[in-house]
C-alpha cells in the first residue's frame, strides 16, 4: 500500500546574523544553509493498517507526509503509494487518498461545513446519489447532524477536526493521511477524534497514516508505530510488543498518604522519593499491574492524593537512545516545519 525506501529531503534555509551589521549583510548577500529535514526513512505499510508516525517537533514527520501525498519532491530515495509515485502521479493519486493537514483547513471558514462537503463532492467528481449516501452515513457516524449548518468559524476545534476527517473521507479514499489530527484538542475531543480515526480504519477499512507528537495517540490508536527523530527512524514496532516494553509500560506514581510513608514497600516497585507522607514510585506495569500497587498503598494507609503519570514522548525517546547505546540526543535541528 505504501512503500518507502531511503526517502530523504533537504531544505535550504536563509541564515541571519544578529545585530545591525548582520541585518545589513543579509540585505546585501543572503546566505543559505542546507538543513536535513528527513535523513533516510524506510518502511512499508500494509493495506488496512493504522500506522502512527511519532516524533517531536521538527523530527521530519510533516515533510514525510508531504512527500507521500505528492506535495514535495524528495531529495533522495523512493516511495510508492497505491502503486503511484506520489510526486509524479499526484493528480491520479489524489482521487485515491485523503489528507488532513492541521495548518490548512479544507473547510471554508465563513460557511457551514455542508457547503464545503458539497464542493468537495464536485471536486472529486462524485455522482450525486453516491455522495448523498456517503454523506448521510458519515454525518451519522461522525455525529455531525447539528454542526452541518453552523459556520465553521463558530465550531470548536474538536468539532472542526471531526468535520475535517469526514471531509477527507467523502470521496472514499483508500489511504488517509492525517497530519497531527489531535493537536491542540482537549482530552475529551482527543478521545472522540481518536475513536473516529479508529472506526474509519477498522470499520470502513481505510488505511491510515497519521503523524503525532502525542504519545497518547500511539496507545489509544495504533497497532504499529514508527518513532522518528532527527529525520531518522528510531523505532518501527508493534504497539503490542511496545506496550510490554519498558518504553511505554513505566508509570510514575505520586501519592500523599494519611501517615508518614517511611514503612511502605511493595514488590516490583521502585521508590524514587520519600518525604513525610509524600511518596514517589516507579512501576513497570508490564511486570507489576498498577492495580497491585494501589492495593498495596491502600493496605498501608489512606490515600489522600494520587497522580499516575505516563512517560512523555521525550522520555520514551531518551529511553530508546539509552537502550541503543546512542548519545542521549543529537543537537536539535531547527523545527521549521512541524510548528
Amino acid at each position: 500500500m505504501i512503500e518507502v525506501e531511503g526517502l530523504g529531503k533537504d531544505f535550504l534555509v536563509p541564515e541571519k546574523e544578529p545585530g545591525v551589521w548582520g541585518s545589513l549583510r543579509a540585505l546585501v548577500a543572503p546566505r543559505h544553509r542546507p538543513v536535513t529535514a528527513v535523513a533516510d526513512v524506510t518502511f512499508t505499510v500494509a493495506p488496512g493498517e493504522l500506522l502512527a508516525f511519532i516524533g517531536p517537533n521538527g523530527a521530519g514527520k510533516s515533510t514525510t507526509i508531504k512527500m507521500l501525498t505528492g506535495i514535495l519532491h524528495p531529495s533522495r530515495g523512493r516511495a510508492r503509494v497505491l502503486g503511484f509515485v506520489p510526486w509524479e502521479d499526484r493528480q491520479q493519486l489524489s482521487f485515491h487518498i485523503g489528507s488532513v493537514f492541521g495548518q490548512r483547513s479544507q473547510l471554508w471558514l465563513h460557511l457551514p461545513p455542508l457547503d464545503s462537503f458539497n464542493l468537495l463532492a464536485r471536486m472529486y467528481e462524485l455522482p450525486d446519489d453516491l455522495y448523498r449516501q456517503r454523506l448521510d452515513r458519515l454525518v451519522a457516524v461522525f455525529e455531525l447532524g447539528d454542526l452541518l449548518a453552523v459556520p465553521v468559524r463558530k465550531l470548536s476545534l474538536g468539532q472542526r477536526m471531526r468535520c475535517e476527517i469526514a471531509a477527507a473521507l467523502l470521496h472514499d479514499p483508500r489511504v488517509l493521511f492525517l497530519d497531527e489530527p489531535t493537536i491542540g484538542l482537549d482530552v475529551i475531543a482527543k478521545e472522540a477524534v481518536r475513536d473516529l480515526i479508529l472506526r474509519a480504519n477498522r470499520d470502513a477499512g481505510v488505511t491510515i497514516f497519521l503523524t503525532s507528537h502525542d504519545a497518547g495517540d500511539i496507545e489509544k490508536l495504533c497497532r504499529r508505530v514508527i518513532i522518528i527523530d532527527h529525520g531518522q527512524v528510531l523505532l518501527d514496532a508493534d504497539v503490542q510488543s511496545l506496550r510490554r516494553s519498558p518504553h511505554f509500560s513505566i508509570r510514575t506514581v505520586g501519592a500523599r498518604l494519611s501517615r508518614p510513608a517511611d514503612g511502605f514497600a511493595c514488590d516490583g516497585v521502585e521508590i524514587l522519593k520519600r518525604k513525610g507522607p509524600g511518596l514517589k514510585l516507579r512501576v513497570d506495569t508490564a511486570a507489576t499491574p498498577i492495580d497491585h500497587v494501589l492495593q498495596a498503598l491502600q493496605a498501608y494507609a489512606r490515600i489522600e492524593d494520587i497522580t499516575v503519570r505516563t512517560p512523555s514522548l521525550d522520555q520514551i525517546i531518551a529511553h530508546i537512545y539509552r537502550q541503543k547505546g546512542l548519545p542521549a540526543s543529537a543537537p536539535a535541528e531547527p523545527a521549521e516545519e512541524d510548528e
Binding site: 541571519k16 545585530g19 545591525v20 541585518s23 545589513l24 543579509a26 540585505l27 546585501v28 543572503p30
Partner: peptide, 8 residues
C-alpha cells in the same frame, strides 16, 4: 528599523 531590515 533593525527588524525591518531583516527582510532585505
Amino acid at each position: 528599523l533593525m527588524a525591518g531590515m531583516a527582510y532585505r
